[in-house]
Simulated assay, not measured.
Amino acid sequence: MDLLLQTAGSLVAILALAGLAWWMKLGGEPKLDSEAAVRRAAGEVEDGFDPVAAGFDGKAAIVRDAQGRIMVIKRHGNRFAGRVLGPQAKAGVWQDPGHSALKVDSGERRFGTVFLDIPAPETWADAINRVNERRDA
């Protein structure tokens, strides 16, 4: 009986804390759904990175700065992770009937591939693939 009361009390306490966190809007999933959110995330990934162009879909973003560097950002837990793309990066357009998205391979196995549902994915894919050309010259 003692164990049952302890278990019930613990369950009530856990539910009360979860309700308080929900009411205070703590936790949740961060989104890349505005220029401000994308700019803030890019600055967190690399201090001083100042995007001049961006594409984002809420879950991931791709940004370019004035020097032509391109960064891809994705959600990692309740934070963001990103990479400034180098010569090993590759991009393409993922096609589905009536839909296309940008597919970015950062060239880092641990970072993985990122898919972005953004307008004009071909333009971003070309820009990413040109990163290789600039470095090879």
Score class of each variant (00 low, 15 high):
2 D>R: 15
6 Q>W: 12
7 T>A: 05
12 V>W: 12
18 A>H: 15
18 A>W: 15
20 L>C: 15
20 L>K: 12
22 W>V: 01
24 M>C: 15
25 K>T: 10
27 G>D: 03
28 G>M: 07
29 E>M: 07
37 A>Q: 03
37 A>K: 02
38 V>I: 09
38 V>E: 07
38 V>N: 06
38 V>Q: 02
40 R>T: 10
44 E>R: 01
44 E>P: 01
45 V>C: 08
45 V>E: 10
46 E>W: 01
48 G>H: 07
49 F>C: 02
49 F>N: 03
50 D>M: 09
51 P>F: 08
52 V>Y: 00
54 A>E: 04
57 D>K: 04
58 G>V: 13
61 A>K: 00
61 A>E: 04
62 I>R: 03
63 V>H: 00
63 V>C: 02
73 I>E: 14
74 K>G: 13
75 R>K: 15
77 G>C: 05
77 G>Y: 10
80 F>K: 06
82 G>P: 05
86 G>D: 12
89 A>G: 03
89 A>N: 03
89 A>S: 05
92 G>T: 11
94 W>D: 07
95 Q>D: 04
95 Q>F: 07
96 D>S: 10
96 D>Q: 11
97 P>K: 01
98 G>N: 08
99 H>K: 13
102 L>K: 06
103 K>L: 14
104 V>W: 11
106 S>F: 00
106 S>H: 01
106 S>T: 02
107 G>Y: 08
109 R>I: 04
110 R>N: 03
113 T>L: 15
113 T>S: 14
114 V>W: 11
114 V>F: 12
118 I>H: 08
118 I>T: 13
120 A>Q: 05
120 A>Y: 05
121 P>W: 05
121 P>D: 05
123 T>S: 01
123 T>I: 02
126 D>W: 09
127 A>W: 02
127 A>M: 09
127 A>V: 00
133 E>Q: 11
134 R>G: 13
135 R>S: 00
137 A>G: 07
